[in-house]
Amino acid sequence: MRRVLVLVSALCTAVAVLAVLSSCTWVDPDGDGGRPPGAPTGVTAAAGSATSVHVMWNAVATDQGIGVYEVYRGATKVKEVPGSAHMVDVTMLKPATMYAFTVRARDTDGRLGPPSTQVRATTPTAVAADHSAPTRPGRATGRAVGSRAVQLSWSKATDDRDVVSYDIHQGDTKIHSVGGNQTATVVMGLRPGTRYSFTVRARDAADNVSPATAAVRITTAGTDDGHGTAPTAFRATTHRTDGAYYLDLSWVPPHTDGIVTEYEVHLDGRTATSLVYGGTAPRGRATYSFYLGPDSGVGHRVRIRGRLPDGTWGGFSAERTVTTGAQD
């Protein structure tokens, strides 16, 4: 009898444990079987001026793709940036004040992931009537670190007060920022086998920015034919409205770790127009239409490419040919 009671007690304990484990199982609130994205890692925050802080983080990998990143100051959401961006300047802050930031990722299905580790930054004291920019940083140098990163270094700039931060640009795009006490950094998230051109600028507490250094040109290791970064399913047709012909384009954005917000359309071998989405860029099929002219029977060749998060242009789509009036 005692042995039976022991067995029954053990069985009840096992059932209770299974019940607890079952109650801890993750349940998808959307009912579509997907999980929310993870918390962003590598989050840093550094004062960019007396009234701004530069926040950066690593891209979050997810099968659904990241739609937006949400940046919080304390419990308040202060910025929302496209999934292609991994940094943002939080502005309109108070001088000489410490702030705490976290970042959350929301995937393209709308699921919001957990917050990152909290990071802190203190803005410097404001300076009155400072209109003098820092000097140009000294000669910048760099080298590739494998296929997806480069290491950059430069000499200090000087300012009549203090240099608060250094901005790193790839071409015309600001892609990185570090504190004013740093003279070296590693830029990640680049493409293999790609030639880059970097410059460095110094910034003071009043947001005065120095001239740029001479460009540092570096080619990452490996190969990249651009096919993986080209828009796909590209289509081109024409239509006639009010006595003129228009070119109608549609495509699927290139696969990146975020959303491409800028495109360049090439017509007959030349850049015809650029398209920049100021709001939310398309995540699925995108469309665009522009004026060609009044004449029918005119043939054109067209293709398109997008600017990637690293500041470079991705590969071109397949080229299509159209003739005005042919679809009428």
Rank of each mutant, 00 (worst) to 15 (best):
G48A: 13
V78N: 13
E319D: 12
R217I: 08
V81Y: 09
K174I: 05
A221H: 08
N181M: 03
R106L: 01
G278K: 08
T173G: 04
R217N: 11
R195F: 00
S116R: 08
D130R: 05
A47P: 15
G42H: 10
S23Y: 02
E70H: 14
T241H: 02
R148K: 10
M188V: 11
P115Y: 02
W26V: 02
L190R: 10
E70D: 15
L292C: 12
V298I: 15
V252F: 01
W313P: 12
A75E: 15
G228E: 07
V53P: 05
A105S: 06
T324K: 15
Q182H: 08
G171D: 08
Y245N: 04
Q170H: 11
N208P: 07
S165H: 04
I259V: 12
G67R: 14
Y69A: 13
A45C: 09
V209R: 11
D248K: 02
T323L: 13
R139K: 13
V163H: 08
F316A: 14
S84V: 02
R195E: 14
R201F: 08
D204T: 11
Q170I: 07
A19L: 03
A14R: 03
Y72L: 15
R106T: 02
R139A: 13
A318E: 15
I259Q: 07
T173Q: 11
T91K: 09
A326F: 14
R2N: 01
L93S: 06
A221E: 12
A206Y: 08
S84F: 06
D328Y: 14
V81K: 09
R148Y: 06
T108D: 01
R305M: 10
G311S: 12
A128Y: 05
G38Y: 05
G138W: 09
M188W: 07
K156G: 05
H54S: 14
A214S: 13
R35Q: 10
R136F: 07
R217E: 10
A75R: 14
V216K: 06
H239D: 01
T238H: 02
T108A: 00
V265R: 07
W251H: 04
V164H: 08
G179F: 01
G171K: 00
V90A: 06
R148E: 11
T232S: 12
S289V: 10
V55A: 09
A45F: 09
D268Y: 06
G31H: 07
L249Q: 06
V55P: 09
P211A: 12
A75L: 15
F198V: 12
G67A: 15
